[in-house]
Every structure is written in C-alpha cells, then in structure tokens.
C-alpha cells in the first residue's frame, strides 16, 4: 500500500475512534449500540496499520484485490448495522405507541377524578 494512502487511512481510523469514544463519554451514544462501532473502528485502525493482513485474508478467501475485500465486507457490515437500526426503531415505535395509548387512558381517568 502507498504510504500516503496508509497515512490517510490511519488518521481517519484514529479520528473515527476518537469521535466514537468522545460520544460514548458524553453519553450521546448508548454503550449497547456503540459496541459494533467500537469494534469496526478498531478493525479499521488495525487494517490500516497492518495492510498485509488484509491482503493475506483476501487471498485466503479468493479475492485477488484486497481493496475489494474491504469494500465487500464494509457493505455487508453496513447492511447489518442498518438492519439493526431498523429493528431498534421498530421496537421504539412499539414502545411509543403503547405509552401514548396508556397516557391517553390515564389522562381520561385523571379528568374524571378532577371533575
């Protein structure tokens, strides 16, 4: 790998990891949902420091260009993350619906009591 590319890759990985940890520290991100991002950040960092391992694994599974290996697994990883997000959003929607329904009924009871 070209040294310039490697330097860019390493600094981007470091930046990414830094932001993830910052957000975790500030409590913007829930740890439960951050763990995948932490792992992916660490993977990015190690892959940019030791690109030879990426080439090695790519060759092992029959992908001749290491960058294609990264693209492929990057997309797979993003798909999994997106699916996970959809699951979480659906769950939250369900919770909000239930809460709204209960709130409506409670409000009615309150109004009846205060009459």
């Amino acid at each position: 790998m070209n040294l310039t590319v490697q330097i860019i890759a390493i600094s981007m990985s470091v930046l990414f990891n830094f932001f993830v940890f910052q957000m975790l520290k500030k409590g913007v991100l829930d740890f439960k949902y951050t763990i995948m991002w932490i792992f992916s950040g660490l993977f990015m960092l190690s892959a940019s420091i030791y690109p030879q391992y990426v080439s090695f694994i790519a060759e092992l599974i029959g992908i001749s260009e290491p960058i294609n290996f990264l693209f492929f697994f990057g997309i797979v990883f993003l798909l999994i993350m997106l699916l996970q997000m959809t699951i979480i959003v659906s769950k939250f929607k369900d919770h909000i619906y239930t809460l709204t329904q209960k709130l409506g009924i409670l409000q009615k009871k309150m109004d009846e009591i205060s009459k």
């Binding site: 619906y97 709204t100 329904q101 709130l103 409506g104 009924i105 409000q107 009615k108």
Partner: peptide, 11 residues
C-alpha cells in the same frame, strides 16, 4: 380518550 400524537387508525 385523547391521544397526544397521531398514531394511525390501527393503534
């Protein structure tokens, strides 16, 4: 019963 947000007919 008043729902504070619009949930749609099903909910």
């Amino acid at each position: 019963i008043e729902l504070p947000i619009n949930l749609g007919i099903g909910a």
